[in-house]
Amino acid sequence: MAALGLLSAGAWLALAQATNYSLWINGRTGGGQVGNHADFTYWGPATTAAGVNKKAVNWDGYNRISTTNGNIRDALDCYCTGPNWCYVAAHSAGNLQIGYALSLYGTSSRSIKTPTPNSAGQCSNSGAGTQTGWNIKWVNVAGGAGGGSELADAGDWALSEPLVSDLKTSTARALYNHNATTGKWFYMYAGSKGTLYSFVLPGQDDEAIAYHSSGGVSGSSGASFCNPSDWLCNDLTLGTAANQGGRAKWSYHSVRFRDDGEALDHYTRGNWAGIVSKVRADMVANAQ
């Protein structure tokens, strides 16, 4: 009985030390200082509520996913190992970053870290050993570029940016296995207040990303998907159901918000704006 009591006390101690974190992964152009998890320049005021113990997983938003993904893995190691768990929010190319990390490294052995990063955003080993992958509850994606953007295909973004090569639709879709999320759910938020590039982006879009990408639609290329009020193309369906016309979503991808009112575009405007506002509201309500 004494041994059982000691084990119970140890379990309670581990539970008391467990902490949940909300990780925010930026998209193209960056903005926050890489390695500084308190710098929310990309998103908006750092004082704005955005989920429990929020951390900015800053990367440069310029170089290719394969060469910058280490910044994301460092943060996941810091906050999502051992007794600690994470909620993840990603915007635009941040979708590629978390998808790439989970697909290629989500079943790898990770050293359990102490969640106190140095200036480079890296944490030291806690001495508690290793674990497989990361403790992630779910992933919210605003204007996700997991399926690429036709703006990269057409050269509307600076072709000198290495990241733009990854954002081409065929490249983004072949960059990793989008179905391999290690069982973590991706909840997609798709904006449709797009006007400036509507002639380039198929179907509804948020002025940077079309529904085929922000809705997590599967396949090796993009296609036109719209709101139910638009009769000119197939509907992007809510949830995990196949879209009108039969095209499926990637595994563990679910459309949580579709911008039927065409009110939300791609841009944060330094104030958690656009489609990001919907993800932030959900993180405040549910990332606890």
Rank of each mutant, 00 (worst) to 15 (best):
N71A: 12
G32H: 01
D235E: 15
H253P: 13
L151M: 03
G32A: 03
A172K: 00
D235S: 15
G5H: 12
V255D: 06
W85T: 12
A120Y: 07
P117T: 08
D156H: 05
S8I: 15
A11K: 14
L13T: 06
F40L: 09
N53F: 02
L102P: 08
V279A: 02
L232D: 14
G246T: 04
A172T: 03
L4T: 13
I25G: 02
G245L: 07
G10H: 00
D77W: 01
D235K: 15
Q97K: 08
V276G: 11
A11P: 02
G82Y: 02
K278M: 08
V139Q: 05
G148P: 03
L264M: 14
A142I: 06
A16D: 13
G27V: 00
T130M: 05
W85C: 03
A281K: 05
A285V: 08
I25C: 08
V88W: 00
S170W: 09
Q33A: 11
L238C: 08
G5C: 12
R256N: 15
N71H: 14
W24K: 07
C123Y: 04
T130E: 12
V34A: 12
H266C: 00
T48S: 02
V88F: 00
N243A: 12
R269I: 02
P115N: 10
R256H: 12
V57P: 07
R258N: 08
Y42E: 11
W43L: 07
T268M: 06
G51E: 01
Y252K: 13
S103W: 05
A208Q: 02
S149V: 01
V34D: 07
G127A: 10
R247S: 15
E262F: 01
R173V: 09
R280Y: 11
N53S: 09
Y100S: 11
G61E: 09
S254K: 12
M188C: 13
R110P: 12
N53A: 07
G147D: 04
T268H: 09
W24R: 05
S109P: 11
S119V: 14
W43I: 07
S192V: 08
